[in-house]
């Protein structure tokens, strides 16, 4: 597990202070926190609210509105499968079913070994070369079930990244 994922009130405050001067700072702050810790911890909510002069309800409301923000730690890799029409037309639904079966989980769940969190995504903008999936910041096109399995095997055997 990445060491940087262990958040503290101080580290949350650091992220907030770097951005709170911006107009409409809440989304940039939430992105910064999730980018650093992998999720937005519940404990960050009162700190953000206090810093921005907003209520906890408002901050919570924003976090819960957007699909991208999560409030619990994801697996080592977040794997998104495109569910949208262009991918459907070239076997996206079958790939989706295969992904769930191969990983043994549904959307918004994490494999028991904490390797992969499965998410749905509605379009990765790779619509001429579907079905598409995204892992981290990388997109894969024309993903067959075989290619999916190979990618998952590779992801699960990658050495752990040691930070610091």
């Amino acid at each position: 597990m990445r060491e940087s994922r262990e958040w503290t009130p101080q580290s949350i405050q650091t992220e907030i202070d770097a951005l709170k001067h911006k107009p409409g700072a809440l989304l940039p702050i939430l992105h910064a926190i999730q980018d650093r810790f992998g999720f937005v911890p519940e404990g960050a909510v009162p700190i953000i609210a206090e810093s921005l002069g907003q209520t906890r309800t408002e901050v919570h409301g924003v976090i819960s509105f957007y699909h991208h923000f999560r409030t619990s730690p994801p697996g080592r890799h977040v794997l998104q499968v495109c569910r949208a029409e262009a991918c459907q037309s070239v076997g996206g639904r079958a790939l989706e079913a295969h992904a769930k079966a191969r990983l043994g989980i549904d959307y918004h769940q994490t494999t028991t070994d904490r390797e992969i969190t499965l998410e749905a995504v509605y379009c990765l903008g790779n619509c001429a070369c579907g079905p598409s999936i995204r892992v981290g910041n990388e997109v894969w096109g024309r993903v067959t079930p075989t290619a999916f399995d190979a990618l998952v095997d590779e992801l699960c055997t990658q050495p752990l990244e040691v930070i610091g």
């Binding site: 949208a84 509605y122 379009c123 619509c127």
Partner: peptide, 11 residues
């Protein structure tokens, strides 16, 4: 916010 499936010209 190019969210429509089948579009990628903005990208």
């Amino acid at each position: 916010d190019e969210g429509d499936s089948g579009t990628f010209a903005d990208r």
